[in-house]
Amino acid sequence: MPTSKIQLRFIDLSLRLCVLPLSVGSIWLTVTNKQDSSIYGRLEFSNLNGLKYMVCINAISACYSLVAIVSFWLRCLCLLTKAWFFLCSDQVLTYLMVTSTAAVMEILYLVYNGDTNVSWSEACSTLGRFCNRVKVALILHTIALFCFFALSLISAYRVFSKFDPPNVTSKDVDRKELEDGS
């Protein structure tokens, strides 16, 4: 195997290994995050759909990363089929992580700034510990998102580098120019 393919495989495996603790850490911080307030009552992650969505996506990404790591050592799939599977899966996971990041960022924006149009006041002055833990969970989730973004690029490179570029002859170019000119 050429050196560049070995390095690419090492980077791929390293990124997938990084996703595991990042996702699990984000899940743990979010699920164990609770705070009581005399103004707002008890606030838990299960009260906010965006946080539940992020936990779900983190769980999916951690499980997928584990399956992908194990599949590196298994030769049960054709290499091209495996490359296409990883390309599609990495893309889907990246998009899901973008949407869950956006959902949690909206929650954080609202709890920090409020929304006067719907009479919501900012809550982080009262629920500071809750807000800080959500921020840390979001940071871990965002780092995992960047890992998946890089994995998507690596997967795309792996798939499309297996194909030769199309051959264009001068006859094809001349014929195309004649068709466009008429």
Rank of each mutant, 00 (worst) to 15 (best):
L87T: 02
E122H: 04
F45C: 13
V118M: 05
K5Q: 11
S38F: 15
T99S: 14
M105G: 12
A150L: 06
F45H: 11
C131N: 00
W73H: 08
T126N: 11
A83I: 01
L74N: 00
K135C: 12
V168G: 07
M97W: 05
R9E: 05
T101Q: 12
I139A: 15
G41T: 07
L77M: 05
L153G: 04
L127N: 00
K171S: 12
R9I: 05
T94V: 14
I39F: 14
C78H: 13
D12R: 04
K162W: 15
L140A: 08
F149L: 14
L138V: 11
V31L: 12
S170D: 15
I39R: 13
D172A: 11
I154P: 00
A150P: 03
S152P: 03
A150I: 05
K176Y: 10
F45I: 09
V98C: 08
S61E: 02
C88N: 07
K52Q: 14
N117C: 01
G41L: 09
A103Y: 04
L74I: 04
L15G: 00
L20N: 03
N47F: 10
P165F: 12
L140M: 11
L127H: 01
Q91F: 15
A68P: 01
W84I: 10
S89N: 10
I143N: 03
L66F: 10
C131F: 00
A68S: 07
S71K: 02
R75T: 11
V19S: 01
S38Y: 15
K162Q: 15
M1G: 09
F149Q: 12
L43G: 12
I57V: 13
V104L: 10
S152Y: 00
K82F: 09
N167R: 15
L8N: 07
V31N: 06
D115N: 03
P2A: 07
K162N: 14
S125H: 06
K52M: 14
V111S: 04
A103N: 05
V118L: 05
S119E: 01
A83L: 03
S37P: 11
I11Q: 07
I11N: 06
C78Y: 11
C76W: 10
C147K: 00
S100C: 10
C18M: 13
R9A: 09
A59M: 07
C63I: 10
A83N: 04
H141L: 07
N33I: 02
L51I: 06
L66Q: 03
C56L: 15
L93E: 02
C63A: 15
D36T: 12
C78E: 13
R175S: 07
G114M: 00
G41D: 08
K52R: 10
S61L: 06
C63T: 13
R133Q: 09
S38I: 14
D36G: 14
L151C: 00
K52S: 11
